[in-house]
């Protein structure tokens, strides 16, 4: 269980997260919706302390991660989390196989002789085969995301943070990724936090949806509640309309 309490983050004078309160339940899929630049990535980066929060608490199994000040303890917390970066963040100086095996050395007791086996197994889990020797630059967007997911899965995290897993993919590939996220929940029982602005994907996979707007969670509920909501902000976002209370600040920043 992850409890985010009054989380604040500002970059200089710019308040990105003002007061975020959210509970993330074990074994469930929580989707966080929000427009571009609303601070979704910032929020989940705070969870693993890739970004330092400016205020508030983040309790992971009752322990406040924002208060940890030893780098060793921090590493111990981070190992519970897998993080799927928006563009994959594959190491481009390594092959796909080396990328997937990367975390094994640091986070598991798997002997190096078994790495190829684990790599094969995890790649199969995301539906890829015989790609170990390729370079990341040779992969398509969908493949990059899946290889990156295989790299996350290799170290058996309890909780996976997905940063826009379907953005930039065609609708079919998006659906494949959504299925994959559902699959992992059922097969491995992992907790998932999925950042997205893909409504189809969110409605399909989410146990709970939270809508982040102007630094706060504006609404929290099941996909069904989101479909039927009267909240004009959420309604506008869900239907993807440019008319409504959410005004894009086109001229600003």
């Amino acid at each position: 269980m992850i409890e985010i309490i009054d989380l604040k983050k500002n970059f200089g004078p710019k308040q990105v997260l003002k007061d975020v309160n959210l509970n993330i339940e074990d074994g469930k899929i929580t989707c966080i919706l929000g427009g571009s630049g609303s601070g979704k990535s910032t929020l989940i980066k705070c969870l693993v302390r890739l970004i330092e929060a400016s205020g508030g608490k983040i309790l992971v199994d009752g322990k406040d991660v924002t208060k940890i000040n030893s780098e060793v303890k921090l590493a111990a917390i981070r190992r519970h989390f897998g993080y799927l970066f928006q563009d994959g963040a594959l190491f481009d100086s390594m092959t796909v196989g080396e990328n997937v095996a990367f975390g094994l050395k640091y986070l598991t007791d798997v002997p190096p002789a078994d790495y190829p086996k684990v790599v094969k197994e995890k790649l199969a889990l995301v539906g890829l085969k015989d790609v170990e020797h390729l370079n990341p630059s040779e992969l398509s967007g969908g493949m990059r995301k899946r290889v990156s997911l295989a790299r996350v899965l290799a170290v058996n995290p309890k909780c996976i943070l997905y940063d826009e897993p379907t953005t930039g993919l065609d609708p079919i590939m998006s659906d494949i990724i959504s299925e994959l996220i559902l699959d992992l929940k059922h097969k491995l029982g992992v907790t998932s936090v999925v950042i997205t602005h893909d409504m189809n994907s969110a409605f399909k996979i989410a146990d709970k949806i939270a809508f982040l707007h102007e630094g706060r969670i504006l609404m929290e509920g099941t996909p069904e509640e989101f479909r039927r909501t009267d909240n004009p902000y959420v309604k506008q976002f869900v239907s993807g309309s440019s008319h409504g209370p959410i005004q894009m600040k086109i001229m600003k920043d």
């Binding site: 980066k45 890739l50 981070r78 928006q86 963040a89 190491f91 481009d92």
Partner: peptide, 16 residues
């Protein structure tokens, strides 16, 4: 690596 989040990836994969 910094601008493509590969440095962040190092942290999440057990090193830094």
């Amino acid at each position: 690596m910094a601008v493509t989040e590969q440095l962040d990836a190092l942290y999440t994969l057990g090193t830094n």
